[in-house]
Design a protein around this nucleic acid. Structure first.
Lengths: 178, 178
DNA sequence: CCGGATAATGAGTCAACACTCGACTTGCGT
DNA sequence: ACGCAAGTCGAGTGTTGACTCATTATCCGG
């Protein structure tokens, strides 16, 4: 990650294009999306993709990092319940994160990015607890577990809005009184 | 599925072996497990697997049917909370069901088997409601959604027992008072 | 505008995997 | 026993997809 010499202008442009294309492809197909498809959408030859990201996992890791950073930003602008609701609603669009958090066939280590997200959610949890919206006994791990679970459920189950609301209502009620 | 002539004795034996092997392989690797590995574990040539199950999806559908039937049986011997707890604990062992319920890359139609499971859970829900253990406003769809979600979460997240308990506690509390 | 370093290209390699098929073997009715 | 339909075998086929590398094109400091 430590660059000795800065990238050439065209290389920078292509790198950005590849990341955007990868995000779209993996959002659509999950980690199964092919590198060739990424190259096609980026308007770049396959070799170029591999020049920037030596393995497919490197590419996945890169967009994961991007998406997690965006989630952290999201978290900082909402309260706990809004954030959960928003994440579930966005689950389909973020298939990559959900699938990778689910560890489907790929193993990628992003301890930093994930712990940043945990920190952000922890802050929301403490706020909610202070406001009396969440029982004192509820801790971060189960909140993260519920977050991951419900996102996966929503993504793979293809829930409609009503089902989403009703399911979250149950969880919110559980968080309030444990 | 309607057999005109009964299977020969060796064919029956092999069919059973293949199903057992497939359950083990797909439990371990999910739907990505290879047909060759199934054949190897069944002690059978690859061609034999394809004689019994013309496509991989047919094989997956067959073991799905089996596993779902077993879940229905499970459900009939427990109450709602026990059943949820049990399913989550078993999630890892039943990777296939969880992944397929999640629709990961494979599309298989098992409307009957799934609706049987829904019927069984509906019965548990009505019992729990009658006993006052679940709020009257809670309906079947969100219970199924939570079931699927938490199983996926537990499977992919590798929860320890404590996290499992705490997560389910939140959900149970939510089901009681909505 | 030149030269060399940097990057892009895309046909090719290799491995994995679902599925086929013709040769062979075996259960079973007679 | 015999015959043959039913079943098994496993090398072969076709495809897909990650990754390579020799060649060609492009950037950029002097």
């Amino acid at each position: 990650m430590i660059e000795g010499t800065p990238l050439r202008a065209d290389a920078q442009r292509n790198r950005a294009r590849i990341l955007d294309a990868a995000e779209a492809v993996f959002a659509e197909f999950g980690p199964r999306g092919s590198t060739e498809e990424v190259a096609r959408r980026a308007g770049v030859a396959i070799g170029t993709v591999f020049r920037h990201f030596p393995t497919k996992d490197d590419l996945l890791a890169a967009i994961m990092k991007r998406l997690l950073a965006q989630l952290v930003e999201d978290a900082e602008q909402r309260d706990l319940f809004d954030f959960l609701t928003h994440m579930v609603a966005q689950a389909a669009a973020k298939k990559t994160v959900v699938d990778l958090l689910a560890g489907s066939g790929v193993d990628i280590r992003l301890p930093d990015a994930v712990s940043h997200l945990e920190d952000a959610v922890d802050r929301l949890l403490q706020q909610a607890r202070a406001a009396g919206d969440v029982a004192a006994t509820v801790r971060l791990p189960e909140v993260m577990a519920l977050l991951a679970s419900v996102c996966q459920g929503a993504l793979h189950g293809g829930w409609d809005e009503q089902l989403q609301t009703r399911t979250l209502e149950v969880i919110f009620a559980g968080l309030k009184r444990n």
